[in-house]
Amino acid sequence: MRTLVVAEHDNSNLAEATSRMVAAAIRLGSEVDVLVAGNGCANAAGEVSAFHGVDRVLVAEDPSLEHRLAEPLADLVFWLAVGYGAILAPATSFGKNVLPRVAALLDVMQISDVIEIVDASTFRRPIYAGNAIETVRSDESKKLLTVRPTAFPPAKSGGAARIEQVEIPDLASPTTFVRLDAASSDRPELGSARIVVSGGRALGSREEFERLILPLADKLGAAVGASRAAVDSGFVSNDCQVGQTGKIVAPELYFACGISGAIQHLAGMKDSRVIVAINKDEDAPIFAVADFGLVGDLFELLPELTQKL
């Protein structure tokens, strides 16, 4: 039985998470195919074919697949599922939307947010926002897995997979796409950035957040994150929230500036390789997880840091 990866892309570009899904799929030990479903997605398919370890790239192009709506895409994956022992998608808003729908069509219980593949039937995943790790075994005929991208390395390059067009069933969707309001930013995407600079409520206002956090992030080429408190206070938009109910990040370097370190925030960033905490309260829980802690006034320290970089 082969393994199928459902690629995430926007027709022209492949999401970085897809590369990491390939790395995870290889660990299952079977031959790996990648489905690139969209409309005018030859570029994305080309990128996938260069990943080491991919046997076939299955391209499905149809107007109904242009916006990656869950309904037609799930029908397509269901239709292709014969012959696959495992189907993987990234645990991103894309994969979380689509894969459970496929699982229910197949009458299979999915395993969400896998962070470790123990063997082809046994997986580890965080529960309670990462406050516990569950090891689960699936005896289902197919394993349906959403996989946390940051838990696996990017796929190696140097592959030359065959690209095949697949036959497409009739795909009807009750749901129609209306519009996408993309959060425009020149900064790296929060979920995949090498460095993240996050600010908390201690910054006090949107103006101060922008004055202190953004220049530091720009100097470092970093993505901008925030605690839930900072988002709720309106300092920064929702999609910047790092934490249990926001984005889970695991960059090489994470700066927590004026963030106390509530459980809910720690759940979103504690797998970062190096954590720096800057806070005026030396008893803040963030210091318990930080590799380097600096106690002091943000309004002095952040400009100094930005200037000395």
């Binding site: 709506l69 519009r179 993309a182 959060a183 995407e189």
Partner: peptide, 11 residues
């Protein structure tokens, strides 16, 4: 709310 923005659908 999706990664990278807001998507609107009609159902």
């Amino acid at each position: 709310e999706i990664d990278g923005g807001l998507e609107t659908l009609e159902l």
